[in-house]
Simulated scan of single mutants.
Amino acid sequence: MATATALQPSRDPDVLTGDLCRALLQPGDAAAMARLLADLCTPAEIRTLAERWHVARLLDSTDLTYREIHDATGVSTTTIVRVARFLKQERNHGYRAALDALETRDAG
């Protein structure tokens, strides 16, 4: 039986982010994730995350321009440009991986 390492206070962004990522993997469904996000984030932070995700989906699956997305959603063009950059150019590929996983799940 493996012995768990005692949790130690940390300021290391990698340690903190890794711990958060492991926690975010725990909810088994959307309702459980919504409860975790409600505890972790302010309503404004949740809305910001949700808007970014919505913009990523719109950029990926429609031919709407940035201006049309802004007009339809109220999300700033600065945010839309940032999401587009991370979706299409940055090396993280987090949006792409999540979009592809949802597409695969929905197709199957």
Rank of each mutant, 00 (worst) to 15 (best):
R96H: 03
G18D: 15
D63I: 06
H93V: 09
A107P: 07
I69M: 03
T79M: 08
C21D: 10
Y66K: 11
L87R: 13
L24A: 13
A50T: 15
L58Q: 13
T62M: 09
T5S: 15
L102W: 12
Q26N: 00
D63H: 14
V81E: 07
R11F: 06
V81C: 08
N92I: 11
D19A: 15
L49W: 00
T65E: 09
C21Y: 05
A98S: 10
G18F: 09
R96P: 05
H93Q: 10
R11P: 01
T48Y: 11
Y66I: 09
L25A: 14
R67G: 10
T65Q: 06
A34P: 02
T73D: 10
D60N: 14
A6P: 07
R82N: 07
T65D: 03
D39L: 10
A23Y: 04
Q26A: 14
R47F: 04
R57Q: 04
T78S: 12
R67L: 03
D19E: 05
T104N: 06
Q89Y: 05
D19V: 04
E51V: 10
A4Y: 03
L58N: 01
A4M: 15
L99G: 09
A23D: 07
R57N: 06
A23W: 05
T48I: 05
H54Y: 05
V83Y: 04
G18V: 04
P43N: 09
P43T: 00
D29Q: 00
H70N: 15
T17Y: 11
P13K: 01
A23Q: 04
A50W: 09
D19Y: 03
K88Q: 10
T73G: 02
D106F: 05
A23L: 08
A4I: 15
L49P: 01
Q26G: 05
I46M: 01
E68S: 15
S61D: 10
V75A: 14
L36S: 08
L87S: 12
S10V: 05
A84S: 04
I80S: 10
A98N: 00
D39C: 04
T62C: 13
C41N: 09
I46G: 00
V81H: 10
A32G: 10
D19F: 13
A30H: 04
P9W: 00
L40C: 07
D60S: 15
C21A: 11
A31V: 15
E103Y: 03
D71S: 08
L102I: 01
P13R: 00
I69K: 12
R67N: 09
A72P: 08
T3K: 15
E51Q: 12
G28T: 01
L25E: 08
V75R: 01
I69T: 07
Y66P: 07
L20C: 08
V15K: 11
D29C: 00
G74K: 13
A56L: 12
A72Q: 06
E68P: 12
G94P: 00
V81I: 05
G28E: 03
D12R: 03
T42L: 11
L36K: 11
A44S: 09
R22F: 00
A6T: 07
A30R: 03
A44I: 09
R82S: 06
Q8V: 13
H70T: 12
D71T: 02
A2M: 11
L87K: 07
D60E: 08
R35K: 00
T3W: 12
R11W: 01
T42P: 01
